[in-house]
């Protein structure tokens, strides 16, 4: 994670040219789409350890695993977002985050790409873009580079705080 952050800080672009405070987002891939989650909400990024399936758990929950003795609830982001199950991939990563209740979650994503720095001008909050009618785990839209498309910014903590009983 430290490496990633450093890499991101250098950045492939000159985002600093823009005005206003800058927020750092980790760009990750789930299915065909790229998403961004704020770096401050991630405790750690690791290769997924063996996960033990927990029967009767909410569908987005893959199971539990142990990270250095800490019991972690593993949530698969694909299922949490209502996408189909992922084929096993060597690029899959687990993002550790802490829910509001203090429970430690590992959010499994298909791939971790890079860190982008978004200034106010490159970031549109959900309520202004979608007019309020949007899932509360969507933070907004980011435009890392003109002409480079947009990424949906997710609120990781909100994603794990409310795990639906059905997908």
């Amino acid at each position: 994670m430290a490496d990633l952050a450093k890499h991101g800080a250098r950045g492939p672009r000159r985002a600093l040219a823009h005005q206003g405070p800058v927020r750092e987002f980790l760009v990750l891939r789930v299915g065909p789409e790229d998403y961004g989650v704020e770096l401050t909400s991630i405790r750690e990024i690791l290769s997924p350890p063996p996960v033990t399936f927990v029967p009767r758990a909410p569908p987005a929950v893959l199971g539990v695993c142990s990270v250095r003795g800490l019991l972690v609830t593993v949530v698969e982001l694909r299922r949490r977002l209502g996408l189909g199950p992922a084929p096993a991939s060597r690029r899959a990563r687990l993002l550790l985050t802490t829910g509001t209740s203090g429970e430690v979650f590992g959010v499994q994503v298909d791939e971790v790409k890079q860190v982008v720095r978004l200034s106010d001008g490159e970031l549109e909050l959900a309520n202004t873009v979608f007019g309020g009618d949007v899932a509360d785990h969507v933070l907004g839209i980011g435009r890392p580079k003109p002409g480079d498309g947009v990424i949906v910014l997710l609120d990781l903590v909100r994603l794990v705080d409310h795990l639906p009983e059905t997908v």
């Binding site: 927990v54 758990a57 909410p58 019991l71 609830t73 209740s101 979650f105």
Partner: peptide
């Protein structure tokens, strides 16, 4: 070790162990 609150209500389980 107790399961996290999000899954602790699963019946038939009391926790997990490494």
């Amino acid at each position: 070790k107790p399961l996290g609150p999000s899954i602790s209500s699963v019946r038939g389980l009391t926790g997990a162990t490494e």
